[in-house]
């Protein structure tokens, strides 16, 4: 394991027009670390993790991934992104392709892997997320939980060195949440570096090394998860936790 942290955000600021979305956000994620980002809606969590792979531009500050400045003009963003897996709240599987082709697409066209190899790798990954028998199914024929697991397989197919999860279970029925969290827990156990935006505090408590709490575009707490759940320092985090854990 290398000494340099994999992801470094340094005083990142972003605004839409005059509305600030991120204010001076600094965050460091070491290799193999699992960081959960939580906070009320509109606090900038999704925007923050989308800065890591350059899906969201930012106005000032710096984002470095594996030593490379994400916002620099000279950065080959597609190449950088092919080393980061991303999973979205709304799955975003390609509806005109089977599960298998969804997982194959970026391997063939971004990584230039030979088709046969990409196919074999995809089938392995679909088996890993428990969907070996659904390879030929179209997204519309899969349940939400199955779609999200295909999306995770699709992200893993790039052999990423980090995974970003943007509220991966928020669009799921309660009984499907666990099948997705189980896959994520398995990944965490295998040592994947993960940044997860989620309200699943059970998952955060069990799996995360650190919890980052955001409010109004600021990172207001960033602490080891036991310490965070034991006693949040800020009043805002305490109120937030009591609200989402109460029921």
């Amino acid at each position: 394991m290398s000494e340099t942290p994999l992801i470094v955000l340094d005083r990142v600021c972003k605004q839409y027009g005059t509305t600030p979305v991120l204010r001076d956000c600094s965050l460091t994620v070491a290799r193999g670390e699992i960081v959960v980002v939580c906070g009320p809606s509109g606090s900038g969590k999704s925007t923050l993790i989308k800065c890591i792979n350059g899906l969201e531009p930012y106005q000032s500050g710096s984002v470095r991934f594996d030593g490379e400045e994400v916002g620099a003009r000279t950065t080959d963003l597609p190449r950088l992104r092919s080393r980061i897996g991303m999973v979205f709240q709304s799955f975003e599987l390609y509806p005109h392709m089977t599960a298998l082709r969804n997982v194959m697409l970026a391997q063939v066209h971004a990584l230039k892997r030979p088709r046969a190899e990409a196919r074999a790798r995809s089938l392995d990954l679909l088996a890993r997320v428990g969907l070996a028998d659904r390879a030929e199914a179209y997204p519309a024929d899969l349940s939400g939980g199955q779609q999200q697991r295909v999306a995770i397989a699709r992200a893993l197919a790039l052999d990423p060195i980090a995974m970003l999860f943007d509220e991966p279970t928020s669009a799921l029925d309660p009984e499907m949440i666990n099948e997705v969290l189980d896959v994520m827990t398995g990944l965490a156990r295998d040592g994947m570096t993960m940044v997860v935006v989620t309200h699943e505090m059970g998952f955060a408590r069990k799996v995360a090394n650190r919890v980052v709490f955001m409010d109004e575009g600021r990172i207001v707490e960033d602490r080891p998860s036991e310490a965070f759940f034991g006693a949040p320092v800020t009043e805002r985090a305490r109120v937030f936790l009591s609200k989402i854990i109460a029921h």
């Binding site: 597609p78 992104r81 975003e92 390609y94 005109h96 697409l105 992200a155």
Partner: peptide
């Protein structure tokens, strides 16, 4: 075509013209 589709394609390392050709146009 939902904007998230092109976004997901971009996130997976596809170049903008590949996202257009492989993901957006077919839909």
């Amino acid at each position: 075509v939902p904007r998230g589709q092109a976004r997901a394609a971009a996130a997976s390392g596809l170049r903008p013209w590949q996202a257009l050709l492989l993901v957006v146009y077919p839909q």
